[in-house]
């Protein structure tokens, strides 16, 4: 038993809900048990609708689970956890700086101080010079940089990321993946990352957790033993492709049942 400190432990998390239209009781997540040691980058991949985003919302406290327990390392100075949302979750009426400072404002930090503390993170994500722009004036990639900076500003023990690059074009997405690795190694955070892109998960992570189609449960927990630091060339190495095929086989079996199998 390794004595490494944990940042997150989820035990027996189960999620049921009632379909508002048919009033039928559905199971979104059958059972999830996850342990994430501090400093690790863990991704969850799975077919769409497998409940991975739901799981993240439960960890984030936005949804109550039906059963189970979530334990998160308590932070001394900062927040326990912070979420990087999917696209367009910046407040359109606030400037970049005010958006990034938002988490601090929520914790009662004065405007001036919050703005000052937001600056290094704006710099870290490469948005220097865009502090006073409104979100609509930024490209999709830049918006997600701001979104990331907003989460980092509260100095969370655990960074939750909900398909943050899903809405970006392929090239921007790869660029952001490289950026995320750089930021992650500088900020030294534990990350739980949700995606449906297999290559994205392998490229970024120390571990990839593969979920089944609904009702979601863990199919495999794969440790990615690729050397760090990584760059995009690694995606063309045989080891990487092997991981890709392994995970793709697991997921494609899940896909072949539904009518959307072709998609």
């Amino acid at each position: 038993m390794t004595e490494q400190a944990l940042a997150l432990r989820a035990t027996g998390v189960r999620m049921e809900y009632r379909d508002p239209a048919t009033r039928e009781r559905l199971t979104a997540i059958e059972r999830m048990d996850i342990e994430i040691p501090e400093g690790e980058f863990v991704s969850i991949v799975g077919p769409s609708g497998c409940g991975k985003s739901t799981f993240l919302k439960i960890v984030n406290g936005l949804l109550p689970a039906t059963e189970g327990e979530i334990e998160i390392k308590h932070s001394k100075g900062g927040s326990d956890h912070a979420m990087v949302f999917q696209d367009s979750s910046l407040f359109p009426w606030y400037s970049v700086q005010r958006n990034v400072a938002y988490g601090l404002a929520c914790r009662g930090v004065k405007r001036k101080e919050a703005f000052a503390r937001a600056l290094p993170f704006i710099k870290l994500v490469g948005l220097e010079g865009f502090e006073s722009k409104y979100p609509y004036q930024l490209s999709g990639g830049m918006q997600q940089r701001a979104n990331l900076a907003r989460a980092l500003t509260v100095d969370p023990e655990l960074l939750l990321m909900d398909e943050p690059f899903a809405a970006l074009d392929a090239q921007t997405r790869e660029l952001m993946q490289v950026e995320l690795i750089r930021i992650w190694s500088e900020a030294q955070k534990t990350v739980l990352f949700i995606t449906h892109q297999i290559d994205e998960a392998i490229f970024l992570s120390d571990r990839v957790i593969v979920m089944s189609a609904r009702p979601g449960r863990i199919l495999a927990d794969i440790t990615i033993e690729l050397p760090r630091p990584r760059d995009l060339d690694i995606k063309r190495t045989p080891r990487f492709v092997e991981y890709e095929e392994q995970i793709w086989r697991l997921i494609s079996k899940q896909l072949s049942v539904g009518p959307e199998a072709a998609a």
């Binding site: 944990l6 998390v13 189970g68």
Partner: peptide, 18 residues
């Protein structure tokens, strides 16, 4: 103790006994 999470009184913990 085994988990190595912070002492329980400091631990952010959510139980979901629905």
């Amino acid at each position: 103790t085994t988990s190595g999470l912070a002492p329980s009184e400091q631990q952010a913990k959510r139980r979901h006994p629905q």
